[in-house]
Nucleic acid binder design. Structure first.
Lengths: 343, 343
DNA sequence: TTGTATGCGTTATCAC
DNA sequence: GTGATAACGCATACAA
């Protein structure tokens, strides 16, 4: 493997100094057109492309951002990551993606890896409510923005989320409108603001409609497919089963659909289902899942744009940037009027 | 933003030279235990973590690999990326993911971005058959391995794939065993070896079974959801429609399922469907897609392991590493015996 | 408008 | 065992 061609080689061929090569590379204004052309020619001739690592070291800027997720094979994160990759490309940033486990240790290791690689900014797509450290990095001058989830102590944090409480409320509102009175709810771990807020929205909406909050039809365990299927099946086996299910995520809704099919009941005739997230597969006509959209794609774009601004003007780091999207109900074919309604 | 703490700061605190700090950082054998401890303490005390950019420049190694895909929101790539991320983490490599368009220009831009960032190796997950350039990089000492697809002139290239022809054959074999005689095939752009080889396998299997190859029930257009739905619908509307569909990818199979549902027919009673890839959603019991597995996950692991070897021993770059997996049919619930069979 | 010299934060090659 | 010191490949302040 021969040595890479460097800016010095270009300089030699063009008959100028290396600093001049650097100047044309960086589009400095005061370079004679003639010299510029000579350099450009030389670059073509010997096939030079700058070493971004050396450049990063000199400029103290890597043009790389970090994205921390839990699992990019989860459609929600995969679809988000795709948007972020495309958007980052526009601004000439590359992105290092780290799938970190949800425990504290893995998360911190991910952050310190990214700090070591001197990324210019970090997007965290799966932060726990109790994470404190994230604020420290901000103070040290590293822009960190959290996407979709926020921490408890978020007054001074940058984050983008959807109004999760409202999202749950409009889902319940719609089901009540369809005359459902027994609405099961599938939640996930309360250590995440998304699940926490959605459960809260569900509770409040249930009570606002004069229905009673029944803990036995609310699942609060791990986000595990099989467990959710089991829970749903156990409810569906009873004669007086919930006529509707509201799930905290579309993936969970898929598990419920599975359980309903296993129980021999029909969607939406016997059971209505609403999900949350509006991942791509939910829109597949064969699935046709009614769901609450958080405008995932727009959120992802805004997250990256906001991060870019924070990176390019570090004076803004001190004033928390917080954006809250308004959710929207997307009605497809897993919801219908409650046929067993007494009215 | 205060200056980062450097190895010099550590040296000052520990009362040693910066080179000694470097030595303990790199676990050099000949450092007195006492000195090592002093340095380690100092590191803890002032919270030092090495600048990987500077380190990369000095070592001429970034511990970063590049992954080029077309669209990480596509479950096939998302699931692959996840495996690669996790596997890379084990070996202490980070990964920059680039979603590149399928045209030559975007691909080359992606590669040169990665070369600029001086990645130690590249995995290409979506190479076109006609790509030539990829071999050049290998010659220049940069390990590149292609995953899932291969180039025409692949004698000297590194790649990992499944036996696509065989995969198509076992799918057709199974459908014939179920007494299907009119089997439609949905293919994608022939510029990719996957689609090319799967079509070939389909043709050969059809003929091997004494059936006639009917071009009118073979789709060869773009991999576009709506177009595939339209094509499938047009076939299904006829009285004598194909009783089975074999799709080049699970995503395509999803489109067919959609079309079948729209046509009012039933799966698998009226129409059997087989996909290819075995993406996660195919295994969802509610979908239950019969499909050809290429052992995607094992393939991804092998791809990364192979790349690691190439990176750590560049003498192996010259001898092409080529691995071909044997596909397996996964029977789920979208296939059944042809009820309209004459026998 | 251009060249010289220095620094970015490490690793690696010498000496001692 | 350890400390100077020269790379690594650029950007940039300062001179000219």
């Amino acid at each position: 493997m021969t040595r890479r061609v460097s800016a010095y080689d270009v300089a030699k061929v063009a008959g100028v100094s290396q600093s001049t090569v650097s100047r044309v590379l960086n589009n400095y204004p005061y370079v004679k057109q003639e010299t510029r052309d000579k350099v450009l020619e030389a670059i073509q001739e010997i096939g030079f492309s700058p070493d971004e690592i050396a450049r990063s070291l000199a400029k103290n800027k890597t043009n790389t951002i970090g994205l921390i997720t839990t699992d990019i094979s989860n459609p929600f994160y995969g679809e988000t990551a795709h948007i972020i990759l495309r958007e980052a490309q526009k601004y000439d940033y590359d992105v290092i993606i780290i799938d970190a486990e949800t425990d504290r240790h893995s998360f911190e290791r991910a952050v310190s890896t990214l700090v070591g690689k001197r990324v210019d900014g970090i997007i965290v797509a799966s932060i726990r409510k109790d994470n404190q450290k994230i604020l420290d990095y901000g103070k040290q001058g590293l822009p960190i923005i959290s996407y979709n989830r926020k921490i408890d102590d978020h007054e001074r944090a940058h984050f983008i989320e959807v109004d999760n409480k409202l999202g749950a409320q409009i889902a319940v509102d719609y089901l009540v409108e369809l005359k459902h009175e027994s609405i099961a709810f599938i939640s996930g771990p309360m250590i995440y603001s998304t699940f926490h807020d959605r459960l809260q929205g569900y509770q409040q909406a249930i009570q606002a409609h004069g229905l009673t909050y029944d803990e036995s039809i609310v699942y609060q365990g791990e986000n595990e497919y099989d467990q959710i299927v089991q829970f749903s099946l156990s409810l569906l086996k009873k004669d007086t089963h919930p006529t509707a299910f509201f799930a905290s995520t579309d993936n969970m809704a898929l598990a419920i659909m599975d359980a309903v099919a296993q129980s021999g009941r029909k969607i939406p005739e016997d059971v209505s289902i609403i999900g949350f997230d509006d991942i791509n597969i939910a829109g597949n006509p064969y699935i046709g899942l009614t769901t609450v959209s958080q405008h995932k794609n727009e959120m992802a774009v805004q997250t990256l744009d906001t991060l870019i601004h924070l990176m390019e003007d570090s004076s803004k780091l001190g004033t928390p940037k917080q954006i809250i999207f308004t959710p929207a109900l997307i009605v497809r074919k897993t919801t219908a009027v409650n046929s067993s309604s007494s009215t």
